[in-house]
Structure formats: C-alpha cells, structure tokens
Amino acid sequence: MAGVFEIAAAGEESYFFKLTAPDGTVVAVSPLFSTIKGAAAGITAVRENAATGLVVDHSSAAKPAKPARPASSAPLPDALVTSR
C-alpha cells in the first residue's frame, strides 16, 4: 500500500499537507499554504519530483568522496580535483 497525503487546516486561513506511511509514520509535513488549492499543488509537486530527486547527505557522518587516483603516481590534473 502506498503512503497517504492528508490536507489539514492550520487555523482559519492556512492549510498544510502531510505524507503518512502505510504504518502510520508521518514521513513529511509541508509548509503552510494560504489555500487548499495551494496545498494540492504542493502534493502534485512532491509526487512529480520525489521519484527523480537527488539524495544529498548533509549529515556529519557523510564524508566527501575523494577522487580516485590514477594508476601512475603523477598528480591529478586540476580538472579532476574538487573542493567543497
């Protein structure tokens, strides 16, 4: 079973949506929207972009990948050296 998007009111003139996993775990909560149509458009955007979105790990456990060294001991060309 797929997750469920739920639209809810947040006060009198604000709406948000949440994505809930089949086991009831809340996976995502949206920012506030001023209309229900805005919240529905947010759901559409998540549906369209989630499957193709990149995963970027900003956690402290993530370490930048080092470029592979060529078999020779010659230094890497500048075009292959990256810095963050």
Rank of each mutant, 00 (worst) to 15 (best):
M1V: 15
G3M: 05
V4I: 14
V4Q: 15
F5Y: 07
E6T: 15
I7Y: 08
A8M: 15
A8D: 11
A8P: 07
A10R: 13
E12P: 12
E12Y: 14
E13I: 06
S14M: 08
Y15H: 10
F16A: 00
F16V: 13
F17I: 04
F17E: 09
F17K: 07
K18Q: 09
K18H: 00
L19M: 13
L19C: 11
L19F: 11
T20V: 13
A21R: 02
P22N: 03
P22F: 01
T25I: 10
V26M: 10
V26P: 03
V27M: 01
V27I: 10
V29Y: 01
S30L: 01
S30I: 06
S30Q: 01
P31D: 15
S34Y: 05
T35W: 04
I36V: 15
A40C: 11
A40T: 10
A41I: 02
I43N: 02
I43G: 07
T44W: 09
A45M: 02
V46L: 15
V46W: 07
R47T: 09
E48A: 12
A51F: 03
A51T: 08
T52H: 06
T52G: 13
G53V: 04
L54W: 01
V56I: 14
V56G: 03
V56S: 02
D57Q: 04
H58R: 13
K63F: 10
P64W: 01
A65T: 09
K66E: 11
P67Q: 08
A68M: 12
R69K: 11
R69Q: 14
P70R: 12
P70V: 11
A71Q: 08
S72T: 12
S73I: 13
S73D: 15
A74H: 13
P75W: 00
L76E: 08
L76H: 01
D78H: 12
D78F: 14
A79Q: 08
A79T: 14
A79P: 14
A79Y: 08
L80G: 04
V81T: 11
V81S: 03
V81I: 13
T82D: 04
T82A: 02
T82E: 04
S83T: 15
R84A: 09
